[in-house]
Design a protein around this nucleic acid. Structure first.
Lengths: 251, 251
DNA sequence: CTTGCACCTCACGTAACGTGAGGGTTTAGA
DNA sequence: TCTAAACCCTCACGTTACGTGAGGTGCAAG
């Protein structure tokens, strides 16, 4: 009783397999190159012939790739490295979550940036970079919650008022600088008046939060030149001391 | 009245600039290679010398890179391509959000996969790939909400019961196949009894949802061999017709 | 004058293929 | 049976933003 036909199904050529599985021919070539999926047959002229086991392996490869597993790990997994599938999944989930968290932080920054840009009439590349610098500098000195508080406070304030505050600083700081240069006693009445305005301005920004106030001072100390370039007049550490004396003398 | 000193600050060498800015020397070389940041001076021996404008440009580059903007776009932006910064930001936000959405979908799939794996005692690579295949196949035939419904239903069912259901199908389907082969009248009492059990099994899975029921039938029609390999006995389209006749005759 | 450090220019490697270039093989139609 | 289309092969470069040597030169200090 002879066999009616050869019992093996006809093997697939690359193009056929590619069409069947939705992969590209180049991808199959690539898998062959890296030893991930080597067709079990070749025609004498070198054409790849994939048989059933190859097809099954390809399906496994596709499954694992769909889960975002890199090819070299797929190779290790399918080549019998004794790794528990659970570990693989957990490892990838961890990596993925970290990646997502990073991207989310980036998206938040970009969104914050976008709202900042909307406050400016005709933003230039230079403005853009300045704002980014300011944002990243702030991120170094304040915690996420503090930044949130500051953002909320900013939301509730008109742009006009922000300009007023900037003008106030630009008015006060030179006065303080001159007074210090002239060795004016910080407990003198003029300085006391200025110190009151200074304190009010500080509290408007910090909302009375001591943590924020001290972070601001550290930031001004460390990033003086940078902030000056962006904000105009900026207090120095000595000014803080000088005004501190005045405020201390106010009973 | 002669100048006291030369008015230009001493330029920085790569290592110094790298140290100042936190970049690597290689990165600065790279920026030079691609024409993004070419130092405005070189010593006769070829050492790069960065001057103040170069440093400022580098700071801008760093700012934009912090926002995830690729180097060639940074180059275009800084080289005066007249693109509005807002467009840049919005474009990147859109790309980023799409990317995040993809990663989130992947994470969901991985988490679903993890819970599936926990249902199996000693999961092999093969089991893993089978489950992934099943999941992706389901995703092709059901909407996200339907999948959610099915998942919730699965949560409320013991593993023991799931095995029972599988056994029931494995018992019923051969009976139907035999009856069809023997040309048994679908309105005969034995078939009617089987049809009732069939209907109950179907409803247990679909929860009576017509949309789900019809999606299931399409899936079985299209993916018969695949499902059979994973589930064991699987109904054919003809069986659906046959049982349909029986149920229709039940008044 | 030599040591050591900083600098230079190649040039390969990364992840997963896309996209030709240049040349054989197979197959379907005339 | 011949030929042209369609399919196959093997290089090999391009993609992103640099890391990491390899091998050689410049420069300041002991």
């Amino acid at each position: 009783m002879p066999r009616t036909k050869k019992p093996t199904l006809p093997p697939w050529k690359v193009g056929a397999l590619a069409g069947q599985t939705g992969m590209s021919v180049r991808a199959l070539h690539h898998y062959d190159e890296i030893g991930l999926l080597t067709p079990s047959l070749r025609t004498p002229s070198g054409h790849r012939l994939y048989q059933q086991p190859d097809v099954e392996r390809l399906q496994q490869i596709q499954s694992l790739r769909l889960m975002g597993i890199p090819l070299d790990e797929v190779k290790q997994l399918l080549d019998g490295a004794r790794i528990s599938p659970r570990e693989v999944i957990d490892l990838h989930l961890a990596r993925l979550h970290e990646h997502i968290a990073r991207q989310n932080r980036l998206a938040e920054r970009l969104e914050a940036l976008a709202t900042h840009m909307d406050r400016i009439e005709a933003p230039s590349m230079d403005d853009l970079c300045q704002i980014i610098q300011a944002m990243t500098t702030m991120e170094k000195y304040f915690t996420a919650e503090q930044l949130e508080v500051l953002r909320e406070r900013r939301e509730g304030i008109s742009e006009h008022h922000m300009h007023e505050v900037g003008d106030s600083w630009n008015e006060i700081i030179p006065k303080v600088r001159n007074a210090m240069a002239a060795n004016v006693d910080p407990t003198s009445p003029e300085i006391l008046a200025i110190a009151k305005r200074w304190k009010a301005l500080v509290e408007e920004f910090t909302g009375g939060d001591q943590q924020i106030a001290s972070s601001v001072m550290t930031m001004y100390k460390n990033e003086g030149p940078l902030l000056q370039q962006q904000l105009g007049e900026v207090p120095t550490a000595e000014m803080f001391v000088y005004i501190g004396k005045a405020l201390g003398a106010m009973k």
